[in-house]
Amino acid sequence: MGGVGVRGAPSRRAVLALPAAGVAAAGLVTAAGCSESRPAGTPAPPPVDLAAAQAAARAERDLLVDYDAAIARHPALAALLGGLRAHHAQHLAALATQVPALATATPDGTVTSGGSPSASAPATPSGAATAPAAGTSLPGSAGPQPGADDSPAARASALAELATSERAAADEHRAGCLAATGGLAPLLASLRAAESCHADLLSLAGSAG
């Protein structure tokens, strides 16, 4: 009982079908045991859920920007940070799938339901979520941006700043989880756990030098 069946919560199996959600949501959702028929006239989410989802999506987009900047400054951290960045792209996609109204109702963003969540990250227009480390406009070499401080101290500082951003996002998701309906609360609880885990890993990596 992954989705709790309250208004639009996807079951685990529906979540597995994420990339195809925009095209085949009807069949997949039905196959996953959800009796609602969503895609044609998707009901508006409860206002508390829309607000919580918007705040969560904003936090995820901010994190994508932070990660892109850190990866550009510190290519040596790309392997570590690229994997975590991909999680945030996945988080945005999960939010957009569960709250399709995000695509039209987000005033400041460009989340596209079911599409590539990376499209909303301005710093990586090519947006390959699976290989984010490779892309950040560094022709030829894996060196840092010209003029950027890529010293070990600067790297440790970048990791600490990302950990702080992750903890702030975790707090945002926790508050959203407590405010949301039972349909959205599980996803926000999972996102909260994910950002807390990211912060812990970043802190460990930073203290390990």
Partner: peptide, 13 residues
């Protein structure tokens, strides 16, 4: 490895 130890959506998948 961190790639395996760190889950994208804890509790969900």
């Amino acid at each position: 490895s961190p790639g395996t130890a760190v889950k994208a959506l804890p509790g969900r998948l």
